Simulated assay, not measured.
Amino acid sequence: MAVRGIRGAITVDANEESSILAATGQLMHELIAVNELHADDVASVIITVTHDLDAAFPARAIRAIEGWDLVPLLCSNEIPVPGSLAKCVRVMMLVNTEKSIHEVRHVFLGGAAALRPDLRAEAK
């Protein structure tokens, strides 16, 4: 078993609590499904948001997923690089898994699909 990092990102329609939580939930459900994850296998999740998203903590959406309420979560701001993607939630999960680095599936949804086309699940 190894610890693997699983990446994901999604853009949010508006800086509103409901939009941030819905997008984060959508991203996490997709990451969980494509990687066949169980909360007990997750060491931690780091969530960043761009500076234009401050209406809600995206970690709330993850804690609302059944069984994920005890997973260590940390929210932070993304570095505000000029010209970078706006209204974006990024996730990096550290997961204990038997999967190789090549079997892990990363998920980039909405406008975030442009961030890392080399890591997207469809590119594998």
Rank of each mutant, 00 (worst) to 15 (best):
M1A: 14
M1K: 13
A2R: 10
A2Y: 12
V3F: 01
R4C: 15
R4I: 13
G5Y: 04
G8M: 13
A9S: 13
A9P: 00
A9V: 10
T11R: 12
T11F: 07
T11M: 10
V12F: 01
A14H: 13
N15Y: 08
E16P: 08
E16N: 10
E16Q: 15
E17H: 07
S18K: 13
S19T: 07
I20N: 12
A23H: 02
A23N: 06
G25N: 15
Q26E: 13
M28F: 15
E30Y: 04
E30W: 09
A33R: 12
A39H: 07
D41Q: 09
V42E: 02
A43N: 12
A43D: 11
I46W: 04
I46A: 14
I47P: 10
H51K: 02
D52C: 09
D52E: 02
L53H: 01
A55D: 07
F57G: 03
P58S: 10
I62C: 06
R63F: 00
R63G: 02
I65N: 01
G67N: 06
V71S: 08
L73V: 07
C75N: 15
N77H: 11
I79N: 05
I79H: 10
P80A: 12
V81A: 12
V81Q: 11
S84E: 04
S84P: 00
L85D: 03
V89S: 02
V89D: 02
R90F: 01
V91H: 03
M92W: 07
M93G: 15
L94S: 12
N96Q: 12
T97V: 10
T97L: 11
H102A: 15
H102S: 14
E103H: 09
E103V: 04
V104D: 06
R105H: 07
H106C: 05
F108M: 08
F108V: 07
F108T: 07
F108D: 06
F108R: 05
F108S: 05
F108C: 08
G111H: 05
G111W: 03
A112Q: 05
A113F: 02
A113S: 15
A114G: 01
A114M: 06
L119V: 04
L119K: 10
L119W: 13
A121T: 11
A123R: 12
